[in-house]
């Protein structure tokens, strides 16, 4: 079920699996990116979400400040019931490098992992 949609991000929730999928497409302005992040946090806080998949495969880079912003909401997500989070790796090489900076910023907890595709990601998520 699609729970939010903008020109650069959509949120789809699978009520049975308790998985929220965040799908990014192309370039997001700072405002669009933060809106997507904020909507994610809002939905997680209000619903029984156990797993989060951030599909960045089609995402273009975001600015350094926005990367930091995304990193800053992670504790709030995990504090609201998220057990584990998986990233689907971006295809854009610069986004990939930026994501590695995000990973470093995050300190890479054990319940955050990076995958090439969704089936692999889900298989891993459901071990939590």
């Amino acid at each position: 079920m699609k729970v939010f949609s903008s020109s650069t991000v959509s949120l789809e929730f699978d009520e049975i699996k308790k998985v929220l999928r965040q799908v990014w497409t192309g370039f997001s302005t700072s405002a669009q990116f933060r809106e997507g992040i904020d909507e994610t946090v809002k939905f997680v806080k209000a619903n029984d979400v156990k797993y989060l998949i951030s599909d960045t495969s089609g995402q273009k880079p975001v600015g350094p400040e926005d990367t930091k912003y995304a990193a800053s909401v992670m504790p709030s997500l995990f504090g609201s019931g998220i057990k584990a989070m998986a990233f689907i790796m971006p295809k854009n090489v610069i986004t990939k490098l930026a994501l590695s900076s995000f990973a470093k910023e995050q300190g890479l907890p054990a319940n955050v992992m990076y995958f090439d595709n969704i089936p692999e990601a889900e298989k891993w998520l459901f071990t939590f």
Partner: peptide, 25 residues
């Protein structure tokens, strides 16, 4: 990028080289 705090499940993802990114720019 590796996960230093979880050695039993340590997984890495290969990063592109800086040149690849610069080349794109």
């Amino acid at each position: 990028v590796i996960r230093p705090n979880d050695l039993t499940h340590m997984k890495s993802f290969p990063l592109p080289t800086v040149f690849e990114a610069l080349d794109l720019v």
